[in-house]
């Protein structure tokens, strides 16, 4: 049976992890490669690297990092953040990234999804969607959730699938950082309406939240950052917990 995936997300700036990590057993917690290896050994099913650098050297630095991760890590990983062209994606995939994710650039230019799918295939194109509820309607937001748009979440998700995306990474900006659980109602609707996998993001605070997002939110995978980085939840324990609840996981 296909298992539910647990995905730690690493924020990267200038080739280093940014969000505070609290790992006493790492020589250098700021080194994304070392952290990635640690998570792979702990049982993470996949990794996401989200690049938030804004320097001119960005592309080159990120490509170098991707190459170093691919050389060391034996599980799949996705790279996102600031990707806006076929050339960007080509560089990352050729250095060993398994998938890439596009977000704001796809909203501004939806044709980008078609172009990427035509060149690289659906299987490696993830579309990340940030949304929050505005007057009772889920609206897509840009630039890490700061800039609202008039685009409705479920309509955009349908368009994204029709344009050939292989997966949707949905972050609820209303839940992100709250540690009160994932946006399961919206997730369940997304997952039911769409026929591509949906990754839940935003709101993880405890192990029960993961159970809920798989059972109630019908998510195919769940992504989190700080609960893993600060060891509030250890992946090995989390997977045991999920298995005890009857959720298929890889142990």
């Amino acid at each position: 049976m296909l298992t539910k995936r647990i995905i730690p997300c690493l924020d990267i700036k200038d080739g280093r992890t940014v969000k505070g990590v609290n790992f006493v057993d790492l020589r250098d917690a700021g080194d994304p490669v070392e952290l990635a290896e640690f998570y792979a050994k702990e049982g993470a099913d996949e990794l996401v690297f989200l690049d938030i650098s804004a320097t001119e050297e960005r592309r080159k630095t990120l490509a170098n990092l991707v190459r170093r991760v691919a050389a060391k890590v034996n599980i799949p990983f996705t790279v996102g953040g600031g990707i806006s062209s076929v050339a960007d994606v080509d560089l990352l995939l050729h250095n060993g990234a398994d998938k890439i994710s596009v977000n704001s650039s796809a909203v501004k230019n939806p044709q980008l999804i078609n172009d990427l799918v035509a060149k690289f295939g659906s299987q490696c194109i993830v579309v990340a969607i940030d949304a929050r509820m505005v007057e009772g309607v889920w609206k897509v937001h840009l630039v890490g959730g700061k800039v609202p748009t008039d685009i409705e979440l479920f309509a955009w998700a349908r368009e994204v699938e029709e344009r050939g995306a292989g997966e949707i990474l949905f972050t609820s900006m209303d839940h992100d950082g709250t540690k009160n659980g994932f946006a399961n109602e919206a997730l369940a609707r997304l997952s039911t309406e769409r026929n591509i996998p949906v990754i839940a993001s935003g709101g993880a605070g405890n192990m029960q939240h993961f159970t809920d997002t798989f059972l109630l939110g019908k998510a195919d995978a769940a992504l989190a950052a700080s609960v893993f980085h600060f060891k509030e939840i250890e992946i090995e324990q989390l997977k045991k917990h999920l298995k005890d609840q009857g959720i298929p996981v890889r142990i």
Partner: peptide
């Protein structure tokens, strides 16, 4: 089933 199949299977 969702298509593509993405993830870990047995």
């Amino acid at each position: 089933v969702k298509v593509p199949q993405i993830g870990w299977n047995e």
